[in-house]
Nucleic acid binder design. Sequence first.
RNA 1: GGUGACGUGGCCGAGUGGCUAGGCAAAGGUCUGCAAAACCUUGUACGGCGGUUCGAAUCCGCCCGUCACCUCCA
Length: 505
Amino acid sequence: MSSPVFRLHNTLSNRIEPVEPLEPGKLRFYSCGPTVYSYAHIGNFRTFLTADLIVRTAREIGLETHYVSNITDVGHLTEDDVADSGGEDRMALALSSKEGKRFANVWDLARFYANELLRDWSRLNMIEPDVRPRATEHIAQQIRTVEALIDSGHAYETDSGVYFSVDAFKDYGRLSGNISGDNLSETTRELVVDDEKRNVRDFALWKKDPKHLMQWYSPWGWGFPGWHLECSVMALEYLGEQIDIHGGGEDLIFPHHECEIAQAESYSGKQFARYWVHTRFLQVEGEKMAKSKGNFLTVHELVSDAASGGRGINPMALRLSLISGHYRKPYNFTFDTLRANLKHIERLEQSLDVARNAPSGTSDVAARITAASERLLAAMLDDLNTPEAIAALLDGIKTILTCKDGISDEDRSAAQQFLSRVDSVLGIINEEGSDSPESSEEDDEFAATIEEMLDRRQRARASRDFALADSIRNEIEEMGVEVMDSPDGAKWKRITSIQGIDAGE
RNA sequence: GGUGACGUGGCCGAGUGGCUAGGCAAAGGUCUGCAAAACCUUGUACGGCGGUUCGAAUCCGCCCGUCACCUCCA
């Protein structure tokens, strides 16, 4: 048996290619992380989830995967065209916003949102990178790299900073197809105005700016590093001069990744990354997600409980929603599909219960469950075809649920193997996190009230006073709780709803 | 203007020359005092117009529409 082949779309070739690591059996993977100037939104997380699925799938087939993802905690500029004359710094902007007023300084703000990122990351049951480097902790390395690029003739200093010379790197533009500078039309805003730049396309490696809120001392005076530099430097530091896969959002193809290639390859003289994987932006309810449209959704808001102003969504359902579209296609995130995914997660939990606790029986579905399991992995190996994988997931769950009244030993074992694969590859089973809403005293009181009402209802049913029983149930439902009668008595659970969307239902 | 992607049933989303994707919603049924859950059943869609072919949602051409990137948004 040959080992399974993992195929991914490579932006460099615009083709789906088998992933063949430089060093057989060992995968070096770098995924671009966010700038932490606010809560990360679901679009950010769609990209991070693509990385997460790459790691999970690679490990499932036994590739020893070294996974690095950074945190950008330097405030880069919102507009390059005004950068030289004092453009705005993202962090500084966030600091002066209403929300940012509570932070003492940009360092504090970056620290806060970096912590929140990690919190959202773990809520979505995402794999922690082996190394999670921060830009501000790699300034010295960045300065050394700039010096090396100047020494080798790939960069030069001007009054405003140090620029990378695009003319000194022949492959510039290969990744994005932006080969010439001429294709920038009048619809594009003007490029950086700096008479000392040798080519308008040259980009900054170091900005001189003694007024910047975050600044460091360098051979070129006080200032801060260019945005593209940090990822190249940190990838080189933790993964070596040549990595296998480099990923990020589609917007990073140009200029960020194009510039990374230029810097890293000029520095090392070797091909930097062999596979480039990019995630398409998602839309919300059919529209581009934008703060101005009011459809800017953060993971923080969606999964926080209602009491603290969130929408109280099960993080696993959110995770499933965000991976339910193919990563290279525009995905339309809607509350309708989120609601469907809440049901899927409930059924998944039921299937776990069946696999563990269903009584012994004579079911005969092991072959079907195993087929679903194989189909699931095969779909993921085929350029992360998550919609197909989820179809296999649902088929497996459905099959397992048919065994709830009795399951054979063979089927139980197949079911457990299936669920274990679902756990490791899709990451939508998070049992530690699932009962996360810390059981507070309020919850205990609430439960006691419901139990008491159910007792009264049970007595009414016993005396066949169904009208009373039903009216009690209606009362319970108005409290947001669903009642389910079963052979071992009535069970209840909170009705899954999305705060702010299902209000009044 | 340049580059790239995409348009599939009420909705979300696979497929990419002939063979049921799947899910949500909906309808009917089994079960139940009634429900809920679960299970079973039902649904013939591929933006438009041409062309290639025995046969096209799938290939080719044109058109229409949507979206993204083109110097710092994942």
